[in-house]
Design a protein around this nucleic acid. Structure first.
Length: 466
RNA sequence: GCUCCGAUAGUGUAGCUCGGCCAAUCAUUCAGGACUCUCACUCCUGCGACUGGGGUUCAAAUCCCCAUCGGAGCACCA
């Protein structure tokens, strides 16, 4: 099987489906898995040099090693070779019609005058195409099918076009001006690579029938195919690489790995685990129906994986200072994990002032009792300047009074910026977060985050999910 | 306009190939409860679906036809 992206941008969640499902089938049936870069459009979906590496990187992250990595752009000689054969066989012809003219004829089931030209003459035209004697748009090579086929999508489709542009890969550069189109390149590639099974998007359902002509002419056996529908994610809606590019260029996002984007790079940065993504994709299956799924399902998978490994920390958003009268400075000892005690504790030095979330104290009144988690119970004595007095340290007392338990942070904690899919949140966290670079942590009563960067003044975390 | 494909709970999915074991699987969401010094995790309980109509058959989610709805292709993109 194969996964054949055009590296015109990084992999998205849609690509991830292709990576995961194909590779899982290969694993299941001990087949061969090929990553093929379908990079033969220098124009509309022009490849991005970095994206090749990004795909390889995403595969490494998924723990998948393709058996073979191939570049369609390395195979021009092969394509030209087969094209020549087809011309000689009278199964392909150079067409000089303007696009709209051909469409009109095709829709009327009428052949254009170039269709009747002899193979010898076509061969001359083909050589002239390759030699650069025609300009862009002037000529294409068409595969001869049935011009009166009842399905207009199958009538004499184009296999090559002229585009005098360079290819982003330096090893290709300006070498070629005649570019193979998807159905032709794909047909040749799949055969040459010995493909037995193909999964592709249902937008390519006609490819099998179109390519079927080429396979028939050469006497090849067509691989078994299946199709899947489009993935729509509630949180992102429909998305396309070109659409994302536009939004990034417009400054709506900070880059391809912005937490608001449905790219693999973005969800990696946010701390989604490869295993969770795999399960999510496998669960989606391979139906032809379009799926409209919520990230919640992915988060649920991820939460189960991440919960046992994430250390807990306090992070206070919208911080407000709270003074506790008669509080003896101490070093609080808090568990790094609520159930896995072997992980040890975190120590936080506290004086008579702490930071708490504004949301937590908003509905309080003087006299309310609440508990600073793992520290002590307090009774609010003033709201104008937030003050309290320590009432007890016993958890039982708090339970009797049905008080709330809230989290807190030391006044000399580290500023934390949490980058989320929709917005960023600033606050103060425990200094212990500084040692968690690149790890997934849980900010208690807030959610899971991946610590993206740390320095003495600031921590940047990427929000994973609640 | 022509052609092709699909339809199972809020969402995703199993079952459809070879009709009976399907009073329909699993997951997630949601509601309730237990546990818990987090609104996390875990556990328990509950709600919830075969698009509609015909036909074939002893028997239809499964086969056939029609309708409805949805998607895709008819590019010198992939």
């Amino acid at each position: 099987m194969r996964f054949a992206p055009n590296p015109n941008g990084p992999g998205t969640l849609g690509s991830a489906r292709g990576m995961v499902v194909n590779s899982e089938y290969v694993k299941m049936y001990r087949g061969k898995f090929i990553l093929r870069f379908d990079d033969t459009d220098p124009d509309i979906k022009r490849p991005m040099l970095e994206a090749y590496e990004w795909y390889l990187d995403d595969f490494r992250w998924l723990g998948v090693t393709p058996d073979q990595v191939v570049y369609a752009s390395d195979h021009f000689p092969l394509y030209y070779d087969y094209a020549r054969k087809l011309i000689e066989m009278g199964k392909a012809y150079v067409c000089f019609c303007k696009g709209e003219d051909f469409k009109e004829l095709k829709d009327a089931k009428k052949a254009c005058l170039h269709r009747g030209v002899s193979p010898e003459e076509n061969l001359r035209h083909w050589e002239a195409m390759l030699a650069g004697e025609y300009e862009d748009q002037q000529a294409v090579l068409r595969i001869r099918t049935d011009i009166d086929h009842k399905d207009p999508a199958l009538r004499d489709w184009a296999a090559f076009r002229i585009r005098k542009l360079s290819h982003p890969r330096p090893e290709i550069g300006n070498k070629y001006i005649v570019w193979p189109l998807l159905d032709f390149a794909g047909a040749i590639e799949d055969h040459e690579l010995g493909m037995t099974h193909i999964i592709r998007g249902k937008d390519l359902m006609d490819s099998e029938k179109r390519q079927g002509y080429v396979y028939k002419y050469f006497g090849w056996k067509y691989p078994r195919t299946t199709h899947w529908g489009r993935v729509k994610i509630h949180e992102f809606g429909k998305f396309s690489t070109s659409g994302l590019r536009k939004a990034i260029e417009a400054g709506e996002y900070s880059g391809w790995d912005d937490p608001g984007l449905p790219t693999i790079r973005a969800i990696r940065r946010r701390g989604i685990q490869a295993e969770a993504l795999k399960k999510f994709m496998i669960e989606m299956g391979v139906g032809t129906t379009d799926v409209s799924i919520s990230m919640e399902s992915l988060y649920a998978e991820n939460r189960k994986i991440v919960d046992p490994i994430a250390n807990r920390y306090f992070f206070v958003w919208n911080p407000v200072e709270l003074e506790i009268a008669d509080f003896e400075p101490t070093v609080a000892k808090l568990p790094l994990h609520p159930t896995d005690h072997a992980r040890g504790i975190r120590e936080v030095a506290v004086g008579n002032k702490v930071l708490v979330c504004r949301d937590d104290i908003e509905k309080l009144e003087v006299g309310s009792t609440l508990r600073l988690k793992d520290l002590c119970n307090i009774e609010i004595t003033s709201l104008s300047s937030l003050q309290a007095k320590k009432s007890s340290t016993s958890l039982e007392d708090l339970k009797k009074m049905r008080g709330k338990i809230i989290h807190w942070a030391p006044v000399d904690g580290i500023p934390v910026r949490v980058r989320g899919p929709d917005s960023d949140i600033e606050g103060i966290g425990e200094n212990g977060i500084l040692v968690e670079l690149d790890k997934i942590v849980q900010f208690e009563r807030f959610g899971f985050c991946r610590i993206d960067s740390v320095d003495r003044e600031k921590v940047v975390a990427y929000f994973t999910h609640k």
